[in-house]
Design a binder for these strands. Sequence first.
RNA 1: GGAGAGGUAGUCAAGUGGCCGAAGACGGCGGCUUGCUAAGCCGUUGUAGGGGUAAAACUCUACCGUGGGUUCAAAUCCCACCCUCUCCGCCA
Length: 457
Amino acid sequence: MQAGKKRLPVVNCGSHRYNGCHNLRNIGYKVPMLDIKAIREQPKEIENKLKARDPALSLDRLLLLDERRRKSIQEVETLKNQRNKASEEIARFKTAQREEEAQARIREMRQTAERIKTLEDELAATEEELNNLLIRLPNLPHESVPVSMRKEDKIVVREHKTLPTFEFEPKHHLDLGEELGILDFPRAARIAGARFPLYKGWGARLEMALINFFLDFHFTQTGYTPILPPYLGNSETMFTASQLPKFKDDVYYIEKDDLYLNPTAETLLCSLHRDEILEASQLPLKYMAYTACFRREAGAAGEEERGLIRMHQFNKVELFKFTRAEDSFDELESLVRDAEAVLQPLDLHYRVVLLPTSDIAAQSAKTYDLEVWIPSQRRYYEVSSCSNCTDYQARRGSIRYRPEPGAKPEYVHTLNGSALATSRLLSALLETNQRADGSVVIPEVLRDYVGGSVIQP
RNA sequence: GGAGAGGUAGUCAAGUGGCCGAAGACGGCGGCUUGCUAAGCCGUUGUAGGGGUAAAACUCUACCGUGGGUUCAAAUCCCACCCUCUCCGCCA
């Protein structure tokens, strides 16, 4: 049985291919997002919780395969035990020069070896199917998450400031950007294609100012360790964060090297401690990373998402925490506060919303979004998403910690939050701070970073 | 990209087909010493899965970079790949 091997954390995984069909055949058994033991022990409870996210979901097949798997393991291991004993005997016969008896045992063991091989193949097939079901189950939503299949059923937790008012018709940021000469989408299209950004002059200054302001703030005020990660990740990295298998069509993939372009630094930071056992005293570990993020955004289009709202490439500062299991929901609250803390000095109107079961990412147990007001569209847009993924990603990447020195390792909890998606924030900033003459006022806190206080047409 | 050397437990390191889950050392943990004293001695020491138990105890299976293969039997032999180091080439 290769099952034993398969269950081990996979370390050097660059050789793992997804076989074109992304069936994760070579990924270790011990990677499900939900504990198979828990599923076995309380299938109905878990199924009901998961139905809050997807009413069609059923655990029946999975439970059947689990049963079959355990039966096969027993059978195979009994045979292996026989084989191991026989091997010892053969070794003893050989050293005692009792060749006849050794040969007799070897003849017997030929059949056993064949039987083991057959059973192992069956077991491997069962485990593959089981795995493919397990890795696609979403995380269990936390009890505080509103149960609803309607995305609109989010709860507004708090609002900051009042809606901005204008004595003129506020312009769309794309028009502002073009008139000010700070955004140039036609030339970006020439270089790359549609939905790629090009910031120019004060636009580039402003975008960089936001990034630097956020990084400085979290370095000095909230204590996150800055990371400059690789911008490409391998398949194991994508799998751990749960970009794979579900979002394979949304991620840019470089086939020749079997690497994926970073869709969000969450994905990269999540694998920072993959296959490690951390000490409880190290936790929580707080990291942040600025990266450009790349997404194919297949199927996305429309007037609403013109300009900087939805692009193939955007900038983002990401916060990421590895915490003890019992602390993670408290850590989520402080993560949201940390993300908000950079929004407040920018003087923008925003709100914090708690997403319902149907709208949270598969890996997340609970998600708050920060939404900022976009005046030209008279609607809110998400600039941050803060999630507690509990042990979901930790299981996939085998990221653990010892609660006490010498104690059995447990899975850490992982949390991520954008702080913030600067590209979207820039549109809110331009639109909110525009004046009747077409100029844009730079918020106080950014002026030193930008090197100016007003962008004039 | 080419040539070479490596990858064994927390770390270092022995082991080239059979009582090897793997010597030894260091570290860690527990204990004993307290006239070898910023030391000595003794013991212990991973992970995962299955069975078992109220929980333990206990027991079995697997794990020597990864994945395959050969064999009754693989750390050891064969194939492919990954990673690290050195040299050459290329390059910001």
